[in-house]
Design a protein around this nucleic acid. Structure first.
Lengths: 243, 243
DNA sequence: GGAATAGTGTCTGTAAGACAATATACT
DNA sequence: AGTATATTGTCTTACAGACACTATTCC
């Protein structure tokens, strides 16, 4: 039975290392991608893993995640990036070296430049979700589980929040916004119903009063993200609806 | 910049104490209650706080939460209790003594016996949510924030999951189930619409083919929880609907 | 019978599924 | 003109809000 120590007595409680791991998602080439780094050292040398690192003494987990995010993506301006805590993974044997508790986070970003491998990584690249979750690429530690949880978080949050706008650069067309849902959910939401829903949720998108045309077809109107956070009622994920 | 150590070198990374804190909810006297313990020692001696404790070396956070839950509630059979991870709180100064990271959990239980104060607590009791969130009872550490987050988790999960059944003892009437929503949301869902919704979600509740009558009025049919986990589409929270 | 509680019926408005029709670009 | 893409229109069904009505008990 562990009781709260009455004073600062480091020997009275078990000491853990605490890390952050990051599931960084983006949309590239119409597909949902996640950033992985290849480990250069044991354990799991050569295996792919989520980027992450230790929390410093003066940081909370979010600050550590922001720092790691900047390091891994090479981006200075992270204003457009959404970052949220996912869950904490604490199996006693998740790291064979020692007791490590990891606070996983999820980040969503519009298409980013190619990542730079950090000093502790042999390589770093964007992976398509199907390649990572297919089972052919076992990740280090318990990162397969973290990726699965992160993916489900992203997919479900697209239903009831406006986070899809974080995956596209402004200004964007409704077709681009729809492609976010298509990439994340695997099946596209019906075209007209999607437009109707997005435009009916107040503050989801705001018109920019400009159009753009890539190739043939009628030019598309451009929008930017509005102030709304939640979608109420939620956008229906194809397949969740009628029987 | 914190890099992963290559071997077991405890001096190469910052060491943290890791705890679990528990937001344990139940419904009593038609109101949503949370279990708090009164601290007997500094810091925050005399203040009320969430039950919790250190994670042992052989435990993950869930196992520690289960252990603390059993200790605090005095219950052996925790089968009917729902327990889930909430979030992790890691502000460097959240505990003035030392660096403590806490993995908060949420538990939902049907009406439990009065709690027993542990050896490290002066007292333990159920508090009505309004009394705790009103600001008149500042909790120890960052527990006000944890309670606020836990409460929002419970309220929102009632919308899209069948967790309400975890707050009532089986078999239960639909009126009892509705009172769970009334207590958690503050306003009652409309009577007939609630019945229609609950009965239309396949696997939410299953009839027991028995009735019960307390006092006057037509006897109520009895139900038990069904196998369904999610409510699709979600139950509408009063006020979230039409304008 | 009257009060109280449980359960049923039904009208209305909102919004999603499905799909047809129109608009405007490029070749 | 023909094709491709964006945008608009509309019919149908599902479902929530609101509220009236019936059923069955205790007093």
């Amino acid at each position: 039975m562990s009781k709260a120590p009455q004073g600062y007595d480091p020997s009275a409680y078990p000491a853990f290392a605490v890390t952050v791991d990051l599931g960084i998602f983006t949309i590239r080439d119409g597909a949902l991608k996640i950033l992985l780094v290849q480990r250069s050292d044991d354990p799991y040398a050569g295996a792919w893993a989520l980027p992450g690192g230790f929390i410093n003494p003066d940081e909370d987990s979010r600050a550590a995640a922001v720092r790691e995010l900047a390091e891994e993506t090479g981006l200075g301006q992270l204003d457009a990036v959404h970052l949220e805590q996912l869950a904490t993974y604490s199996d006693p044997h998740r790291d064979p070296r020692m007791r490590v508790v990891s606070v996983a986070h999820v980040a969503l970003a519009p298409d980013l430049p190619d990542p730079v491998a950090g000093s502790d990584a042999a390589d770093a690249r964007w992976w398509s979700i199907e390649d990572v979750t297919g089972g052919d690429l076992p990740l280090a530690f318990d990162h397969d589980q973290i990726v699965a949880d992160a993916l489900e978080r992203v997919r479900s949050k697209l239903e009831y929040t406006t986070l899809a706008t974080r995956f596209v650069a402004e200004p964007f067309t409704l077709a681009e916004l729809r492609s976010v849902y298509t990439a994340a959910w695997g099946t596209p939401p019906e075209l007209n119903n999607f437009r109707r829903k997005v435009l009916s949720v107040e503050g989801f998108v705001e018109p920019v009063d400009a159009t753009v045309s890539h190739g043939p077809g009628r030019p598309a109107m451009l929008y930017r993200a509005g102030p709304a956070i939640a979608i109420q009622p939620a956008m229906m994920r194809p397949g969740n609806g009628l029987k």
